[in-house]
Design a protein around this nucleic acid. Sequence first.
DNA 1: CGATTGTCTTTCGTCTACAGTCTACGGTGC
DNA 2: GCACCGTAGACTGTAGACGAAAGACAATCG
Lengths: 225, 225
Amino acid sequence: MLSAGLPQGAVPKLERPGPLRDRVYEALLELITTRALQPGQHLVESELAGHLGVSRQPVREALQRLNTEGWVDLRPAQGAFVHEPTEEEADQLLTVRTLLEAEAARLAAANADKAGVAALESLCVEGEKAVTADDVDTAVALNAAFHAKIMTLAGNTVLAELAAQVDRRVRWYYTPVARQRGRQSWIEHRELIAAITTRDEQLATSLMREHTEHTRRSYHERAQD
Amino acid sequence: MLSAGLPQGAVPKLERPGPLRDRVYEALLELITTRALQPGQHLVESELAGHLGVSRQPVREALQRLNTEGWVDLRPAQGAFVHEPTEEEADQLLTVRTLLEAEAARLAAANADKAGVAALESLCVEGEKAVTADDVDTAVALNAAFHAKIMTLAGNTVLAELAAQVDRRVRWYYTPVARQRGRQSWIEHRELIAAITTRDEQLATSLMREHTEHTRRSYHERAQD
DNA sequence: CGATTGTCTTTCGTCTACAGTCTACGGTGC
DNA sequence: GCACCGTAGACTGTAGACGAAAGACAATCG
C-alpha cells in the first residue's frame, strides 16, 4: 500500500506551473480587463516578453488566443492591438448575452435541485450584504458568481463556455454601469430564484431577459450623460 | 489621381499569401471535418509540419486555435488530439444552435429588405434544384449558405461569429443526418422566407426553432437504428 | 510469478536566430 | 514651401535547436 500513511486527499497534487502560455494569457487578460492596457494600444511582443520574464513564443500564443476570443486584434505584419469596443458591438454582445443567460435560466429552472437553490440563495444573501456594506468589488464578484452558478445548474457545458466568454467581455464594456446597479440587481435575483424553485421555466426565462435588459438600459441612460 | 486608368475595383488586391498559420488552420479543419483525421487521433506536430511542408510553429498556432474552438483537445505535455464528440455534447451544441439561429431569424425578420429576401429565395430555388437532382453535396452547401445569409441579414456580427462556430461543429456531428433530410428542409425554408417577408418576428423565431429541432429528432431516430 | 524500478524513446514546451515587411523620418528636387 | 522618394529602424513571421516531461518496455527484486 502506497497511500498508507498519507492524509487521504490532502496531498496538494504537487502544484505544477502548467503551460506557460496559459499563465501569460491570464496575465494579459487581467491587464486588459483592468484597463492597465488600454483599448487601441499596440502590444509589442518583445516588450511583453521582457516584462513578464519569458520568451516571445508564449506571448505569441497567448495573443493568438486573445485574438480568437475578441480581446485583441491581430493585424498581419503589424502586431497586436487591444480591441476597441464600439457602441454597436457592445449592444450586439449584450443581445447575445441576454439570449444565453435567458436560456440558462430556463434550463436551471428545469433541472435545479434543492442544493442548487440553496447555493443561489446563499450567494444572494452574501451579495445583499456586500451591497449594504458598499463593498462594490465583492458585490460585483458575487454577481458574477451568481450567474456562473446558474450556468452550472443549467448543466449545458457548451452553453456555459460561450456564456463565460461573452459575459467576461460584457463585463469589460459595462464595468462603469455594473458598479452602479447594485441593489435593484439583487432584488431581481431573488425573483429569479423563486421562479427556479417553482420550476417555472417561462417565468425564469423572462425574468432573466428583463434582468439583462435592465443592464442595457442603464448603459444607454448613462451614455447620454 | 492615381486610380485614373484603373478598372475600378478590378485590382486583384495583390493576393498575399496571408499568415501561414491561417492556411494551416484551414487545412487542418478541412482534414478534421472530412474525417481524414479521425476523432481521438493523436496529432503530432512534427508530422503535420512535415506533411504540410512548413515548420512546427505555424502548426502549433493553428492547433491552439483549433483548441479554443473545440475541434481538438490539447493535453499538456502530451499533445493535440482530435476532439471526440459525445452524445451529450452534440445535444447541448444543438440546443445552443437552436437558440442562436432562432434569434437570427427574428432579427432577420425585423431587418430584412427586399434584396435580402430575394437572395434567400434565390438560394432556396437553387437548393430545391439540387435536391431534385440528388446532388447532395451542393444541397448541403446551399443549406449552409442559406443559414449564413440569414445571419448576415440579422446584422449582428457577434451573433454571426458564434453561430458560425457552433454551426460548423454541429454540421460535423450531424453530417450523416444532414444528408438525409433534404426536401423537407427546403419546404421549411420557404415558410421561413414568408415569415421574414411579412416581418413576423414571432413566426420566424418559432419556425427556425422547429426547423433545427427537426434536425435533432432526425438524429435521435437515426441513432436508434 | 507479480510488482516495481530504471532506462529509453518520443514528443512537447521554450528559447534563440534570421529573413521579410511595414512605418516613419529625413533628404532632395520642383 | 510642398510633395515625393529613399533609407533606416523596428517588429513580425518563420525556422531550427535544446532541455524537459510523459509513456513504454524490459530487467530486477521480493
